[in-house]
Design a protein around this nucleic acid. Structure first.
Length: 237
RNA sequence: UGACUCGGUACAAUU
């Protein structure tokens, strides 16, 4: 399994598949083997093959699927535009989808600007007692931002501790500041960065604001930001 | 019986 995984992650899925095909009763594939192959196939867009291997789990080897199996399939289908298939896969799961299966589908919906459908899934998670974590929250924040709904992102962040029990982290902040900069709300972006505690800031965050300021032709402010980040102990890269 | 191996998020410019 370790070797198959490395092969899949170094673009040698063909080799991995040949090894898999050579397995027999003396060395049977287990759920990790299948998850590894399915993940590799999904990442490279070979979705039909992934589904074929998925089918063989039952038909040929009687290996039970787990939530990682589904998470890989859902992400792959989302990544390559098969949103409806991804939804069907999640709905076809025996047992309830876990946090990551939901997160993958939510991201797929968000990336295609179907944020309201993503919200429905969030509600479903909450009602099923599947708690969101900070990654899922960040996916929602990014979804709002990329759909041009930065205010909604802002509001989500405002309530994420109370509603979901998650503290905004450095990714949350970078995500929303990026959204503010792209929509040319530099004042608000600056305000947020300046008000944030140090543990949430980063060189990347300053870069986002600096490029945003340049984009709106406020180069003098950009220069000030560089000075400020240096003052705060960051090295411009 | 146990160990090991597999799944999810943001961030320069250009377009």
């Amino acid at each position: 399994n370790m070797i198959l995984d490395k092969l899949c992650k170094t673009d040698s899925i063909g080799v991995a598949l040949r090894i898999y095909e050579g397995l027999d009763e003396k060395c049977e594939p287990d759920v990790v083997t299948f998850n590894t192959l399915i993940h590799g196939l999904c990442c490279s867009g070979r979705l039909e093959q992934a589904l074929e291997v998925f089918k063989q789990m039952d038909d040929r080897w009687c290996v039970a699927k787990n939530s990682r199996t589904y998470a890989a399939l859902i992400r792959g289908h989302c990544k390559f535009g098969k949103l409806e298939h991804a939804q069907m896969i999640l709905r076809a799961m025996e047992g309830e989808p876990d946090l990551i299966c939901y997160t993958n589908l939510i991201q797929g919906l968000c990336r295609t600007r179907r944020v309201s459908e993503a919200c429905v899934l969030v509600d479903e998670m909450v009602s099923r007692g599947c708690k969101l974590d900070v990654v899922t929250c960040n996916v929602m924040v990014d979804g709002y931002c990329k759909a041009g709904r930065v205010e909604d992102a802002w509001e989500f962040i405002d309530r994420m501790l109370d509603v979901h029990g998650c503290h905004p982290d450095t990714v949350t902040l970078t995500t929303v500041v990026t959204g503010l900069c792209r929509t040319r709300r530099l004042g608000k972006a600056l305000e947020m960065v300046l008000a944030s505690e140090r543990s949430l800031t980063s060189v990347g965050l300053y870069n986002v604001v600096i490029s945003g300021l340049c984009r709106v032709e406020r180069v003098e402010y950009a220069v000030e930001m560089v000075k400020l980040m240096v003052q705060r102990g960051y090295s411009p890269n």
